[in-house]
Design a protein around this nucleic acid. Sequence first.
DNA 1: TATTGTTATACTCTATAACTATA
DNA 2: TATAGTTATAGAGTATAACAATA
Lengths: 166, 166
Amino acid sequence: MRERKIVKNPSRAVAPRPGALNLGRLGEFVGFRLRRVQNQLSKDFASATADRGLRAGLFSSLSLIAANPGLSQNELSREIGLDKSVTVAIVDELERSGWAVRERSETDRRRHALHATAAGEAYLEELFGILEQTENAVLHQLSPAELLLLSELLDRMYAAALHEDS
Amino acid sequence: MRERKIVKNPSRAVAPRPGALNLGRLGEFVGFRLRRVQNQLSKDFASATADRGLRAGLFSSLSLIAANPGLSQNELSREIGLDKSVTVAIVDELERSGWAVRERSETDRRRHALHATAAGEAYLEELFGILEQTENAVLHQLSPAELLLLSELLDRMYAAALHEDS
DNA sequence: TATTGTTATACTCTATAACTATA
DNA sequence: TATAGTTATAGAGTATAACAATA
């Protein structure tokens, strides 16, 4: 068998599950916990939507287009944090599937004004339903007050992170 | 310019920054906020360590090996959530760089008992220092109590997510 | 000159499958 | 038979650079 050093872990908030590894200093970092939860969550969503061949970024892109009609590809790229060349591929697929359309902007002919179609909106409803299910499987452990607080903390962190870049 | 629909966003906890897009229903989901923050955090860390050519998973792997001397590659794979074939490449690089070594387990000759070297431990200290800096840039917005609570909530979510899989 | 969108391309990340050596 | 590790390989995911059209 394998021997293990005892490592102090000051920020551990719940008991480790039996058989779990010692996290060492890694356990002191919020970023590690964040990644761990997020990985798990996105794997759950991926396997719940595996039959649709949903490529990365497509869901959130469609959602942002629906919420912001007339959005440009550049604005979309910035919001999802991906290169504009990736956005081209995403919008290509959205158009091919009939979920969104590119229209030339009338005020600036370089820009594409993106719009979700009725089919796209319907598809979104479906995906949101699945996302809600997979999230609830994890979030039902938290009270509504805790959920609200969690969102608030994450928003404050995100705002601080964006500020760092500028 | 672009016109925008007004979309209700019940779980928004802080005011959107000016010029920010409407998140629509996406803003109702914790997973989205989680991903957003985590992406930003990992980009910050990546650019702070860009000069070292740090491949994905290497840092956390080395950290886990250091905290659990004698760890097998299989156990490591499970903990970092990657396939064992990926772990081979990671351990190859750790060994090539002199940060860890493979030793044959004496009780089960199929297993490799992984150990961090002194150089590996020193390298870890360096990386933890950088991680601490990049995290602090974002986390100094939160009080110690809030940080503790955040960790606890994330741990509960992770535990629930793991339970889902089984 | 600068910006929007596009294409080509290359590099990284990751999983699958087939193999070996041990158990 | 089953498990630990390895290799080869293929498919995503992503960024960079060069380009055309428009501002």
